[in-house]
Design a protein around this nucleic acid. Sequence first.
DNA 1: GTCTATAATTCGATAGAC
DNA 2: GTCTATCGAATTATAGAC
Lengths: 201, 201
Amino acid sequence: MKRSSAASKSLILAAARERFAAEGYERATIRSIAADAGIDPSMVMRYFGNKERLFAAACEVDLALPEMRAIPRDSVGATLVEAFLSRWEGNETLQILLRTGSTHPSVAERMRSIFAMQLVPIAAAFSGDPAAAEKRAGLASSQILGVALCRFVLEFQPMMEMSRQELVDWVGPTIQRYLVDGDASCPPAGRPAAATGGGGA
Amino acid sequence: MKRSSAASKSLILAAARERFAAEGYERATIRSIAADAGIDPSMVMRYFGNKERLFAAACEVDLALPEMRAIPRDSVGATLVEAFLSRWEGNETLQILLRTGSTHPSVAERMRSIFAMQLVPIAAAFSGDPAAAEKRAGLASSQILGVALCRFVLEFQPMMEMSRQELVDWVGPTIQRYLVDGDASCPPAGRPAAATGGGGA
DNA sequence: GTCTATAATTCGATAGAC
DNA sequence: GTCTATCGAATTATAGAC
């Protein structure tokens, strides 16, 4: 059968995204991707040159979040969690990044830049201290990526079963504290957390 | 040169742990591991049978946390963060799990059971509702694993530069809220906490 | 544009000499 | 116990016919 060049490329890309998201870089073979797409493996090479470039093309998706400047200060956390969760579902790209970032240094680099670009400005705008914006963004990233890892990759049952709203309710406040409120604004802040070992009874 | 059987096995295991932790399962080849250990690749097969069994042996480490029954209720979060962080440093096993869990289903399973076994009882003991213990443990796992991912695997600069104490101060309260306090004890979900801004909404 | 055939590597695994 | 040599399978990648 004959297809247009563009149609074949699109089929290959879709299959590649699925395989990379499900199996990571090494286990997703060009042969299996081609088979999924119903196309000869050599076509994959023809269109994308080599596996690395196919992978790059499969990752190349706009991951920008909706404009965040206008959110009320108090709902930054909940809004962000909601935004990220809706991004994750129905978009395999972030799953690819998460599953391959552990072994592919360039993917890790891309992940760093994505989260820095999206969260540092928010932390700088809402929190008092712009000096700690990167630190705050890093902490927020850790919680968001951790949720994604447990829910979509490692498949922790409780994390999979929670509704989106439930997740927003639980981790929204965490992100809120990391990005806008002080680190001493939440629970046990009166007491220096340093007292792990010796603290009062 | 001749070594004792035990010495060779030990050398191989150390090299395997390093490679698996740094490159994941597929990229860490038996050949490279053997080269690191200064031993012939065939010896690896002789001692461990196949790559999968070598991998299993490299992961087989006791990851139990120190006894947690006696911690004061208010320092559960800080104590746990401190305990996990000190576990991560100087112990490649958890890095291996994190880097291979994304592509190795059996590793993901082991990770699930480790975190469930260690955190569910704590959540059940300290939080009011034992029904939500698994959920709470899942949330705590997500934050702890997220920190580990960003700090040790993806190498987010801000997360690498933070001291252990700083991390305890920041994420301790998060774990505390997930595991022992109610979900509405921090800034309540959905509604402003009374602190920061102009009311309502 | 599509496919067949095959080159070129790489890796896990085995057999056997020393 | 250790190493050499090598097999067999899988994979990326290329060349060329239709």
